[in-house]
Design a protein around this nucleic acid. Structure first.
Lengths: 208, 208
DNA sequence: CCGCCTTGGCTAATGGGCGTAGCTTTATGG
DNA sequence: CCATAAAGCTACGCCCATTAGCCAAGGCGG
């Protein structure tokens, strides 16, 4: 008979706890049952505060995306060029390591059709804008920026993904490998700004 | 009363169909119920051929990993250097685009503890060996090879992941962006073989 | 050709998760 | 002090994985 005093935000907070508790599998294993247990409440009671499990997952995803974005912007404020790119990438990776479950929430592709995923899509787009801003500092031609953004996103996201998934043996050297990747990306992006350095020597197999 | 004539392999084949039918969500949404429906059989009957859903998923994962590996080796045989790296990356990406569900199966991190995941871990290790072999052709110092392998895996895997997840707007330019990423990786790996080109100019924020 | 036994299918039933319906109680505000 | 909206609850239906136990199909030895 006593009330638990839940609310929409409280439920989302509890969901985040569940996600965080579950390590990198936390988001995949998020369930209303677990949230209800943590709230000390029967599962159907949650529907007073949340539309569905899918809604809750979306909400967690948006929140996680915004957190990564916030960490990235905070890390890059007042920096430029290679310095900014390093800070961005390190902030990104740090977030993923500190909140593997939340980072996994980031990773689900929103359905471009579904209007329910709109906020998620917008949040993701905002996150990309941080990368765009950092890379604009390299003075690339406008039509190369998109390639640079994609390369950086792919490299950092891929590295983090593999690291979280246990794809690397020998944990000790991972920091150095990340630094090497970053140097490659910095050099590659810089080279994109100075034509004829990279792309023009023909590369068989690419540019189909 | 007529027999369906199933077998272990037949069930796995049907599971692959289910995975393929489901697009990039196919693996996540793989269920015994769907396999049974496709087989024209009641769900519990599948347990005569398969230990559990988890077993079936593992089996699909191993198979997919081996297919990516096979495609990669086939593409790089008789090639070396940048040529081989391009072929490897393109084969990898092509596989993911042609079999998004199976590629997703590749992505689940095997539990390093669980002996049931051993075959999966071994298969993944074999796949990495192809990358190692290709990158050895660049004549890197031994202690740099691991960094190069990780950078290439991260870049290609990350790109493919983002592409499959719908992370890129403007589909038309994706091929070019991939080519740019590859050029960055080729240049970066090549530079790893010629010290002082990249790593030594100090890069604030990295090498913590 | 016959019966046996392995094998592959079945139905029934359990347990767990999501989600809906409808009841009850709390607490709030007039 | 009561009315009512909000926040719980229980009961239920549905889907899925999994277990248990039954039955028939069909190959094989006699």
């Amino acid at each position: 008979m006593p009330r638990a005093g839940l609310s929409h935000d409280a439920v989302v907070r509890l969901a985040l706890q569940v996600v965080d508790d579950g390590g990198s599998r936390g988001f995949a294993e998020l369930s209303l049952a677990k949230v209800a247990a943590k709230a000390g409440v029967a599962a159907p009671s949650l529907y007073k505060h949340v539309g569905s499990l899918a809604d809750l997952r979306r909400e967690v995803a948006v929140l996680a995306i915004r957190e990564v974005t916030a960490a990235s912007t905070a890390a890059t404020v007042g920096r430029a060029g290679a310095d900014a790119l390093h800070a961005l990438a390190n902030a990104w990776r740090s977030y993923a390591r500190e909140h593997p479950g939340r980072y996994a929430a980031t990773q689900i592709g929103p359905d471009p059709e579904d209007p329910a995923d709109a906020r998620q899509r917008d949040a993701a787009a905002e996150g990309v804008q941080v990368v765009v801003a950092v890379l604009r500092g390299f003075g690339l031609p406008d039509d190369r920026v998109i390639d640079a953004v994609r390369a950086v996103r792919a490299g950092v996201h891929g590295f983090v993904m593999l690291e979280l998934g246990g794809g690397f043996r020998m944990r000790e050297d991972v920091d150095q490998s990340f630094a090497v990747l970053l140097d490659m990306l910095v050099a590659g992006v810089a080279a994109l700004g100075t034509p004829n350095a990279l792309l023009e020597h023909d590369t068989p197999g690419s540019h189909r």
